[in-house]
Structures are given as C-alpha cells and as structure tokens.
C-alpha cells in the first residue's frame, strides 16, 4: 500500500492522513507479525539435498538459525518429558517441564515470525543420549543450553532489525538462566564455569559455523550456512 497519496493536496494534514492511512492498514490485512515493520531482509533458505537445508542470508537466515536451534532444544526436552530419566525428583521434573515449555514457545514464536520463509521441521538424532540416565540427559541439556547462549551472543551483531535484536535478547537471557540451572544440577556452584566464562567475565560466543557443527551432530536433517562459511 502506498502512503504517498494526495488525498488532501496542499493541506497541512497530508502527512497526518498518510500516517493514519498507514496505521489503519492493519484492518484490511491481518498478518501475524509486524515486529520489523518491514519485510525481513535477506535471502531465504533453500533445500540443498533431500535431507539438507541452507539458512540463506540476512535477518531471514539468523531467524531461521535461531529457529533451528529452538527446534532442536524443544525436541530434546519433549523427549525428556515423554521418557523422564530414572529416579527423577519432583523439582527437577517440574523445572525440566518448565524449560520444555519455554523452548516450545521459542520454537513456535520463530515459526510464526518466519511464516512462509521458515525452514522445514528438522528431524533430530538423539542416538548419543541415554534418556534413562540423569547424567547423560543433563550433560546433553548443558551442551544445548550453553551452545544456545553462545550462539545468540555470537549472532546478535548480524541482526539488522532492532526489534528482532531485542527479541533475541529477551530469549538469550532465558537460555542463560536454563544453562545456569542445568549446570547447577550437574555440579552445584558451576552455574558460570570457566569453560563458558572468560577472564573478563564474559560469556563465550560462537560463530554460526561453530554452532552448526555441534547442532548437526544431533540432527538427521543437516543445516548449512554457506553465506556464513559453513557447509554441513
């Protein structure tokens, strides 16, 4: 819709009218998201093989990257919820279900935000995890959460749209809360261990290539990011 109209030529209200027309446009077309107030920039994802995808470039790619990680996390915690580890106690069960809920929300949010540009559903491969064993499950959870935090921290600067940057920020701190909790479960007091925090007190950050190399070990659907120097 064009807003540079001349409905009231010469009048001082021209711009006001243009603005109002813009503001009223929503009534005519109900979309899902307007966080960017513009189309997402970038090149969309593409299938690279029967079982491979490339996230493309620009904000579309970064959102699909986040969507891929959230799909993985949600699938993992769904499995934990379906087949809890042996002798799980009430508080751990409750909190792992909470985390599952957060990750599913993140996944569904990105899916909605991306709409037709979203990558397909990824098929996970959790064959390396023993879901009956507490340590195996929590170690995997720690890897997912720590990697998730480092991924968001490392990709933040690539986001061009300030509203999506804010939303990514809203999510990364929740992932960091999860990471600290899971680490505390494995080893109380290790919520911010030296393997993830450097001498400046900064959380480590990871490139898209570093993160996808880890994520793909838990995926049957291989995710590439050729624009960011990574091909699975």
């Amino acid at each position: 819709m064009k807003t540079e109209t001349t409905q009231n030529p010469g009048g001082v209200n021209l711009h006001r009218r243009a603005f109002l027309q813009y503001a009223g446009a929503g009534a005519a077309a109900i979309g899902l998201l307007a966080a960017g107030c513009k189309k997402l920039d970038g090149v969309g994802m593409k299938k690279t093989s029967a079982n491979g995808i490339d996230i493309g470039s620009g904000d579309l790619a970064i959102l699909n990257y986040a969507y891929a990680l959230e799909q993985l996390e949600a699938a993992f915690y769904n499995q934990v919820a379906t087949t809890p580890y042996k002798n799980i106690n009430a508080s751990e069960s409750y909190r792992l279900l909470n985390i599952r809920g957060h990750e599913v929300i993140h996944r569904e949010f990105f899916k909605a935000a991306l709409g037709a540009n979203a990558i397909p559903d990824l098929t996970p491969d959790f064959s390396s995890i023993d879901f009956t064993d507490r340590t195996s499950v929590l170690k995997a959870a720690k890897a997912f959460e720590d990697t998730g935090v480092a991924a968001y921290d490392g990709a933040g600067y690539l986001i061009q749209n300030p509203d999506y940057l804010t939303i990514a920020g809203k999510i990364v701190s929740v992932e960091a809360r999860h990471a600290a909790y899971i680490r505390n479960l494995l080893n109380f007091g290790d919520y911010a261990g030296s393997d993830v925090i450097d001498a400046n007190g900064l959380n480590n950050s990871m490139t898209i290539a570093q993160v996808l190399a880890i994520a793909n070990t838990f995926l049957k659907t291989k995710v590439s990011a050729s624009h960011y120097n990574y091909v699975a």
């Binding site: 968001y152 701190s173 992932e175 925090i197």
Partner: peptide, 18 residues
C-alpha cells in the same frame, strides 16, 4: 561492543538464575 554487551548480559542472567 554488542557482542561484549550480550556476553555480559548472559553472565548476569546466569547469576540471576544462580
């Protein structure tokens, strides 16, 4: 600067959780 700020931000969130 953004990466550093996000990285401190994540550490504050870990502290908050702890």
């Amino acid at each position: 600067v953004l990466t550093a700020a996000l990285s401190i931000h994540a550490v504050e969130a870990r502290h908050a959780s702890a």
